[in-house]
Design a protein around this nucleic acid. Structure first.
Lengths: 320, 320
DNA sequence: TTCCTTACTGCACGTTTGTGCAAATAGCTT
DNA sequence: AAGCTATTTGCACAAACGTGCAGTAAGGAA
């Protein structure tokens, strides 16, 4: 009668979600208390045993979604939030919904590329667990800067992804930007680095936010000591509007001739576009410019963003 | 502000299931009462907007499931029920869980073959709605007998499947068994019948129970006036243990030389085995013999059954 | 064995949720 | 417009649920 906790949780979940019994009835069948059943069910949800999925039937879905879907050819998930919420609250709710939306996409043998930043950090805090086999979480770009090696910040994100999905975590211990392009070339020939690059080349899922240059609430990359004055003015001269995983682009999605990209450590847009599922999470209206560029560049297959931004994105394009 | 009911339901569902807000909070955001939100959420579940799925990780799942899986090579879903429940209650709970398990498998453009009988009737009553396009529900075998054309009984089942998935329903207006094999041959050449046979040949999903000859609680086919005394003694002489969609088989799964099959209207086992997903629903320990034969014949890819039957199935095979 | 640590359980309470009912609203017909 | 019917809404109450807390069982070390 060594019915393990896990097996009880499964039985309870089946009875609760599939047979519509009350916790009370389940408790009697399992010969335990109702509160224990309540806890079994939370643990079942917690560990990903129970997955709740919302399928918005495309055709009938809110027009905001279908407009964006048509304009940019991405799968959109608009997160409903009150316009009156502040940036932090919005981010939190977008992140939670993003985490739950990502869950079902992750499968065994996946190689999951993960960027870092405020958005990804929030997402990582809301991931629901899901057991997979032989999955790998790989860091998309370096995180070091002039002050720190960036280990703690970026690696917390990575670790959370890894433990949520039971995946091996592969960090990328290089700075976000090299000072000299030649160093990058040299490093890229190191076998330790090539192992990471090889994993990145085989990614099945990539998850990232976007950086936006003129954001009121500037992205880490532009404010965190990663770039100096000279770098920033070079970006301005090149008409850069934003970045994905420290690789910059212009408003029309192009990125040729942006010299800073030769020193950055994220995957090239070309390479990123090879990934089957590329999930972009955006929260906060101030990221519109960056987002618009990222979409123009075709970097995402799936877009998760808050309602206010979605609205702005549609009008933004409507005017141009 | 013509935010339709449906669109509100979607927003509410996202906030409730994906952002963990309380109904109270959602009501405030939607400017309505909490009870309306409660109703919106039920309708979201009702219409299949929200899907709850339970993924029992194979490896760690209860050993009963993995034993059956290994022995018979089918995907098993054991439904936990108290052994003390009566047949009717057990059937109801198995049917509910079966209905919810089937839901996620149904997709647009599916051709769903449906048998009829007490089990399927119960399942049909618990289906959760799900919007699909261009799906078709096709009746697997005739339902007429000496007293009635069987229209009402079988067609209720079909109709419920059709309306749950928004699918076109194709009935099969022939008796369950012809009196003469020659009539069947003749009918099978009629174009109206061939249309149905053609649909059956293109099924992507088939859903059926099993009939068991020695069941205490005998299946419709053996008790409902479909067969006469002579037929029943012929079945006994041929060592028949059960049927799927009025096609009979022996304990080892074979069906060659069972003459009654030449007069029955269901798809041959050979044809049934072509179907990608073949879902067998079984409730009640008295169906063991029939089930064992059906599994030996390889008729199912997925099996949904109650716990008591699952246990009996394992010991049954253990002894043989 | 005894003591300590850790994890689980049931109780009790406050919160959250489902639902019958009456009022209000929307949609149709005359 | 009036009148009718079919839905939809909010209220109020009961049922179902989550969780802090204290008590208990299960290991582990000395």
């Amino acid at each position: 009668m060594a019915r393990s906790r896990h097996s009880d949780a499964l039985r309870a979940a089946q009875m609760y979600y599939l047979q519509d019994l009350t916790m009370d009835a389940i408790a009697r069948e399992l010969r335990t208390s109702r509160s224990t059943v309540s806890r079994l069910l939370s643990s079942a949800r917690e560990t990903g045993l129970v997955q709740v999925q919302i399928r918005s039937p495309f055709d009938t879905g809110p027009e905001l979604e279908s407009q964006i879907r048509n304009q940019y050819g991405v799968d959109v998930h608009v997160v409903p939030v009150l316009d009156t919420l502040n940036e932090a609250e919005t981010l939190d709710r977008v992140a939670m919904q993003a985490a739950r939306t990502i869950g079902p996409l992750v499968d065994s043998n996946a190689i999951i590329g993960v960027a870092w930043g405020a958005t990804l950090s929030a997402v990582s805090r809301h991931l629901t667990r899901k057991v997979t086999h032989d999955s790998i979480v790989v860091q998309l770009n370096g995180a070091g800067n002039m002050q720190t090696t960036g280990i703690t910040y970026a690696s917390d994100i990575m670790r959370r992804f890894g433990s949520a999905y039971g995946a091996r975590v592969e960090q990328f211990p290089v700075p976000a930007f090299f000072d000299h392009a030649a160093t990058k070339t040299a490093m890229w020939n190191e076998r330790s680095v090539q192992r990471i690059l090889d994993l990145q080349a085989r990614m099945s899922i990539a998850i990232f936010g976007v950086g936006s240059v003129d954001s009121d609430y500037p992205s880490h990359v532009y404010a965190g000591g990663y770039l100096d004055e000279r770098d920033l003015s070079m970006l301005a001269a090149d008409d850069v509007v934003g970045d994905v995983a420290t690789v910059f682009f212009r408003s029309d999605g192009s990125s040729d001739g942006i010299t800073l990209n030769e020193r950055s450590t994220g995957p090239s847009h070309e390479q990123l576009r090879q990934v089957r599922r590329r999930i972009c999470v955006v929260s906060g209206a101030s990221k519109i410019n960056g987002l618009q560029g990222a979409l123009a560049a075709g970097l995402a297959t799936d877009l998760i963003l808050d309602e206010a931004s979605a609205r702005r994105l549609v009008t933004f394009n409507g005017h141009s």
